[in-house]
Every structure is written in C-alpha cells, then in structure tokens.
Nucleic acid binder design. Structure first.
Lengths: 147, 147
DNA sequence: ATAATAAAAGATAGTCATATCTTTTATTAT
DNA sequence: ATAATAAAAGATATGACTATCTTTTATTAT
C-alpha cells in the first residue's frame, strides 16, 4: 500500500527523530548506512521531504538533517501525501471514475469503511507516536525487508 | 491497492457473469471493446484467469470465455490472489521483515484491523455478489478510469 | 480433410517507480 | 578569501508492471 519510497521516508524520519537534533544533525551517508538504504536514493527522498518542510536540513560542514519541534508532531499522512499522494484514500477501490455516495460501486460502502479507517489511522499518528513505541530502537531500525 | 490488471480482471469477469454463458461465449475482442480495454493485454489477463480455473474458455469457432456455475461463486480474493498475489494482506504495513503479534511494528495492531477487514471483505464477496449489485449494468461497465 | 475461427503462447515495446552516479551550490571553519 | 563539507540538482540506469503485436495451437463447421 505504501510505496517503498514512502517507507524509506518514514524510517528515515523516525531515525532522525530518535537520534538527531539541531545540535547534532545527521548526514545522508550516515542515515543510509544505519538504515541500510541506497545512499543516493535516500538523498532524493530526504531532499523531497526537506522541500516540503517535513524535515529540516543544513548544508555544509556540521550540516545534515534533523527535525525541529514542529516536525516531530507531523502526522504520518502528511509524509504519505508528499511521497505517494493521497490517491489511495480518495479513489474508488474498483477503479471506477465516478464512485460516490450517489453513484456507489458495488463495493463502495464496504470498502469505504477500511479506506477511511486507514486514513484516520495515518492521520492520528505522529512521528513521535512511532518513536514512543520503539522499545528497542534497533529492532525497528534494522528489521526491514530489503526487497 | 488493486493493480490495474486486477481491476481489468474483475471487470471482465463481472461482464462475463452478466452477459455470457456456456451457450453464448464471448471472445476477447468483444470483451475488450465493451469494456474499453486494450485487446491483447486483456487477452493475457483472461489467459491467466483461465489457466487458474477462475473462468472457462473454449477455442475455435463459437468459442470464447464464460463462467461455469462454480466460477460465479468465486470470491474476489481468489481473483486478487491470481493476479496480484496476497502480499498486501500478509505483509507488514511499514515494510518490516518480521512483524507479528510477538514482534509488532509500531502500527501493527492498528493496521491489522483494516488489513484483515479488507481481506475479509474480499473473501466474503463473490462475483455474483457484484453482479447482483449492478442496478444498471452499463454504469458499472462503462464508468472506469482509463488512466 | 479443409478452412475458418479464436484462444494460447511468445516476443517486443513503453511507462513509471526505484535506484545510482555526477555535478553544482551553499555553508562553515580556518 | 579559501578549502572542506554536505545538501541540492541533474542526468542516467534498472526493473516491474502495463501494453501491443505476431505466431502457434486447438476446435468447429463445412
């Protein structure tokens, strides 16, 4: 459901929230290394997140990425919107062009329950919520599917 | 969530259930034309469905595709399994390799509700269920996103 | 048997998400 | 000012899904 890029983004952000701060920024290389991600691809994603104010960055020596206080409160759905877009949450499950309460597809009402449920879930969890559930940080950071 | 191929498959099957029978089979050309789908691509999908006994086919003159009685009772999840696979319903929402009741990801329990809900939805609806909800067949057949 | 029909199978092309590398720009410390 | 650092930007490559075309095989009607 979430693209690989989006999951890379979420992992990176959680990693930053957990480990970085304005006074100790973390660079692309370090992030990619710790999360075992392709360096340049990760750079692209971080760049996109920075441009959309999801995370912060500083260039030059001692530069890198970090999250300011506001960013830590960002909801997961905002990250999803930037990376994947919200099509999943707005489009008909059966691909109907016009599917609505007035002209529902055969699965409309059933499908809507779960689609809206996921929307609400991602809209109610912040980066900090994820961080707070990490009991041993490493398991969350290291345990990802590579393929 | 469902791939384009999978939606093409579902539309084709519903169209067949609605319009075809052993005594009046429908060929690829006709199906593609009526549903406004790419002919050869649709052929490939129907072929895949036939191979997996989701639909039936007969070659030669007066041949084409149709659904036998058993096929009409097929659940949507079976079509999804053949075309897209069940990864969506079995994998961790955050891409964790090992995510389970014992080692849950930060979203595991919340996410599971909706993932399982969708699984159950697709497992409880048959082709005939979709057909029976078509009040005016054309709207369902014609109203699909092309892109 | 033969010709016509239509699905099955194989080969090829396009597109988009994923991934990588190189060059440029901005910042900081010296 | 200068050199070092690190993100930003641009160009390119890869793979999977989507799409199309051609050839082969099977069936039916004559």
């Amino acid at each position: 459901m979430l693209s690989k890029s989006c999951i890379y983004a979420l992992r990176s952000i959680v990693f930053l929230a957990y480990n970085a701060s304005f006074d100790s920024k973390i660079g692309i290389k370090k992030i990619a290394e710790e999360l075992d991600l392709p360096t340049h691809y990760t750079g692209k994603i971080l760049q996109q997140l920075t441009k959309n104010k999801i995370i912060q960055s500083v260039k030059g020596p001692n530069g890198g990425f970090y999250l300011n206080e506001k960013s830590q409160e960002i909801e997961l759905i905002e990250v999803i919107e930037v990376i994947d877009g919200l099509e999943f949450f707005t489009n008909c499950g059966l691909g109907l062009k016009e599917c609505s309460e007035e002209h529902p597809c055969p699965l409309h009402y059933d499908f809507k329950i779960y689609r809206d449920g996921l929307w609400n879930l991602f809209s109610s969890k912040s980066i900090l919520d994820l961080v707070s559930k990490i009991e041993d940080g490493d398991a969350f950071i290291k345990n990802f599917e590579k393929k």
